[in-house]
């Protein structure tokens, strides 16, 4: 499987107190665990991104538990109120325990 590559879209600059939209996408097959192998009839084991989390300067902004019903290459967008300059850290957690992270800086003023 191709390596999971996270992509995020965050404005570089914001006013203090401004509410921004953050868009995220990670390449991942999101094997639901419901599909069957056509030849053997066996269920293909589930392997999905089961959790996503965004923190700003160490404080939680948004997180979500993800079930197999979320599409492959999961896309998530959400809002954030920017209090000051800082860095947003995004973390995706895979069923196998791997974590994928990426970071983006936001400058206020």
């Amino acid at each position: 499987m191709a390596k999971s590559k996270p992509r995020v879209k965050v404005p570089k600059k914001a006013e203090a107190g401004e509410i921004i939209t953050i868009k995220t996408l990670i390449s991942h097959k999101m094997e639901s665990g419901q599909r069957k192998n056509k030849k053997t009839g066996e269920l293909i084991p589930r392997k999905i991104i089961n959790h996503f989390r965004a923190e700003f300067n160490g404080k939680l902004v948004f997180e979500t538990a993800i079930e197999p019903a979320v599409s492959s290459n999961p896309y998530i967008s959400f809002k954030m109120k920017v209090p000051e300059s800082g860095e947003v850290v995004f973390t995706w957690t895979d069923d196998d325990g791997s974590k994928y992270t990426t970071k983006k800086k936001i400058k206020v003023g």
Binding site: F62, T64, A69, V70, S71, P74, S77, K79, K81
Partner: peptide
């Protein structure tokens, strides 16, 4: 999603830093 083999899709958690309780994703039906 009430007609899927398993109804659970996702649970979003918002915080004070969210500013607005709004989120989007793409799902399988």
């Amino acid at each position: 999603a009430d007609g899927n083999p398993r109804p659970g899709v996702a649970t979003f958690r918002f915080t004070e830093l969210s500013g607005e309780a709004e989120a989007s994703t793409r799902i399988r039906l």
